[in-house]
Structure formats: C-alpha cells, structure tokens
Design a binder for these strands. Structure first.
Lengths: 122, 122
DNA sequence: GCAACCTTGACACGACTGTGTCAGGGTTCC
DNA sequence: GGAACCCTGACACAGTCGTGTCAAGGTTGC
C-alpha cells in the first residue's frame, strides 16, 4: 500500500490531521476512503497538499479564496458573471451595458469547461 | 452636477451609506472625491453598484469573493499560481508536474492583462 | 452663517474561517 | 483480541466579514 492514513499524511505534508479534514470539507483535496471509512492519501494528494501550503503562504490568500476560485472553475455561469462585472470598468458609460466581446469571453470559457463534465442547467 | 453624494447614491442603489464606504474599502467601487473630500457617485458608479447587488444576490457569493476575483485579475502571478494548482487535478500522477498547456493558459491570461496597464514585476 | 450633510474612527455584534481539543464509538492489523 | 489508530460531532476561541450606530469634527449651499 502506498496510501497513507491521515496522521501519516499530516506528518509528511505539514498540515495537522484536523486541517486535512477541513481542507477536504472545503473541497480542495478529497482523499479516497478505505472500506471502513478511513481516509487514504496517495502520492497525488500528498503532492497537492504540499503545493497547496506553498500557494497559501506565498501569496496572501486563504483556503476560502481557493474554494471560490474552484467555484469559478466549476460554475461557468458564475465565472461569466464575475468576469463580466470586473471587466466592465468605469470607462463603459451606459451605452453598451454588456456587449459582444464580453459575452464572447464568457462563451469561450463555457466551452472550455463544457469539455470536462458539468452539472449545470437544472 | 450629475454626481450624487453618498446618501443619495445609497437611496438609488439600495446599499446603505455605511456599505458604500465598505465597498470602496475593499476596492470594488471607488467614487471620485470633491475638493473637500466628499464622495461623488457618477452614473457609472451607480450602475456598477446596482449590478454588484444583483451579482452577489444571484450567485451565493460575498464581497470578499469578488475582491479576490479582482486580485486574480490584477496579479497575473497569483492568477497563474491558483489556476495552475486547480488545473492539476488528480489524474496527473507525477510525470508531468506543471506542463505545457497549463503554462499556455497562464501566458495567455498574462498577455490579456498586459494590455491593460499593470503594476507588476518590482 | 447655519442647517444639513459629509468625513474618519471606534465599539458592537452575529456569522463564518481556521485551528485545537475532547468524547464516544468504529477499524486495522499484528 | 487488544493496542493504536481512525471516524464524526461538538465546544472553544481568535480573527475577519458584513453591518449598524455613535462621536467629534469638516463641507456645502442657500
């Protein structure tokens, strides 16, 4: 077995077991489970946890920020809306509320994401 | 004068004056100032404030989430790092840690942003 | 020149983030 | 079959987010 239990994973990644459960809860690193329900961390998860630590430390961000970035990536509608709002900086008076190139970007992203199994449009 | 004071702006946008100051503080809508220091909200800011309300209400997000999206847009380095981390989902074992198409996306975004006056690379 | 507005700064407060610890109960594996 | 681990759920606690309110003082505009 090259899958570690939560405590072992904690030791080799620098997170606490408590935090590994929390990181899982916010949807950033979700390990497999044993038949009995134990978390099993494989090499991929361990790497992911290490780089996650670096990412949070180097830039001044939190887990919830990453969680939001993840939502942006999984919800094209949200992605388009926020991108659109941020894009529409001051210079756009009232004339062209939400026009072509904006929707263009939006559609582009939707297509990129569509290629990866979605769960939108109820 | 077609610029409103904070109270007037509050009335026509649905925010409270307190919140308008807060929204400014997190960097999302920054009105001009009068000689004496009063905030002056023009049509562009008013529109922006209204669409901001809709954006927050429709999707389940907060001002801090938008503030983070704004950081992503202003800091290409941060953008690349988070995108990279999120992109590298499980299926990538250890072989190709952070490879071409990823950096491709990253560079593409950097270029898009470079066209809009940056303050990076110290 | 003064009423009506604005400014910043502070205290307050519930909700959530990030983190620890502890309790009661199930799993692993030698 | 028992020691050593794991699970979930809860309480706790400092820090931040989103909001309100109030105080002391400056600006606007008739």
């Amino acid at each position: 077995m090259d899958a570690l239990t939560i405590q072992e994973a904690a030791e080799t990644t620098g997170w606490s077991p408590r935090m590994l459960r929390y990181v899982e809860r916010v949807g950033l690193v979700e390990p497999a489970r044993s038949a009995g329900g134990y978390r099993l961390y494989g090499p991929a998860e361990l790497q992911r946890l290490r780089t996650l630590r670096e990412l949070l430390a180097e830039h001044e961000i939190g887990l919830s920020d990453l969680a939001f970035a993840l939502r942006l990536r999984n919800e094209p509608e949200l992605r388009g809306a926020t991108d659109g709002w941020l894009e529409a900086e001051a210079e756009r008076p009232a004339d062209v509320p939400q026009s072509d190139w904006l929707r263009f970007e939006q559609v582009k992203h939707s297509k990129l994401l569509a290629a990866a199994a979605l769960t939108v449009t109820p």
